[in-house]
Amino acid sequence: MSPTHLEPQPDPKVRAHLEALRAVPPRDPAAAAQGRRAFLEQAHQLAVSARPERRLNWWKALWIGLTHPQKEVSPMFSALTTILLVVSLLLGGGGVTVAAAQASMPDDWLYPVKTWSEDLRSEITRDPQTRLNLNLELAERRTAEISQMLAREEVPPEPVLQRLQTHLQTALQLAVAQNDTQAIQALERIRQRLEVQYQRLQQQANITNPVAQAVLQRTRAMIQTHLQAVQEGLQDPQTLRQRLRQGMPESVPMPPRNQRPGGNPWAQDTPTPGSGYGPGPGPEATCTPGSGPMMPTAQPPRQGNGPMRP
């Protein structure tokens, strides 16, 4: 009979060993309680960031529907995105439109196409290294957009800041999901690129619009916060993994290596839940396992029901 039709059973000697393995020393109640608290706190943070309470008018809903198709604002907007795509492709202008959108700014009408195409790239990118590089590239784009708008004394829309936060956090999660050696190499790359972005923002001094000035401070602080997290990770990747699991980096204090007069409004003033600066919406909002190579930590499933397998 084929082995697939039998119910295989261990022989007595193997079974005796297996029985010995059943006994497990009691779990430390304090550690168990701490784990439970951390889990529920993380759930709370994600729940808040998943369903921010906000008043939606039609254009905000359209913006969210187009830029974050996974967020369940309304099925109509996902459908609308699909219809727009199909019509665009049927008219033969899809590639042209997307290409033209790449240079658009957040206040341009083509900007949703730009972010949509970025989300699509993120969705179809499986290789963790490529995803990490993509998130760094997208973070640089967001910083450049913010920087350009601020230079014109304009205020970047909140979703742009949220996307920057998401890209940075995803890059960190992808970095530490590797083994320690690879994680340190990846973190070093992130550090170098973040420092360039930070320098770019530091050069913007003559902003008179107070709202724009506040956005500049927030953006600087956001990058600084991630820079410090990176530096912590360079010293001990495990510490950063734990911090990411607990919902960093909003509460991370400022790094000592960069001059920051006036403290860090991002880290000090912004409560994590509900602040809109959490993992945020979008396909890169979490670091999930998928069908690609398995990652050691912080890799929840990317598709279907299953966790990502190696």
């Binding site: 396992p289 929840p300 499933p301 279907g304």
Partner: peptide, 20 residues
């Protein structure tokens, strides 16, 4: 304990991403 924490963290992130 770390395994438990990481497993449940991945579970939450999967739910959050709509892939749970």
């Amino acid at each position: 304990e770390e395994c438990v924490a990481e497993t449940f963290s991945r579970f939450l992130h999967a739910l959050h991403a709509g892939h749970g």
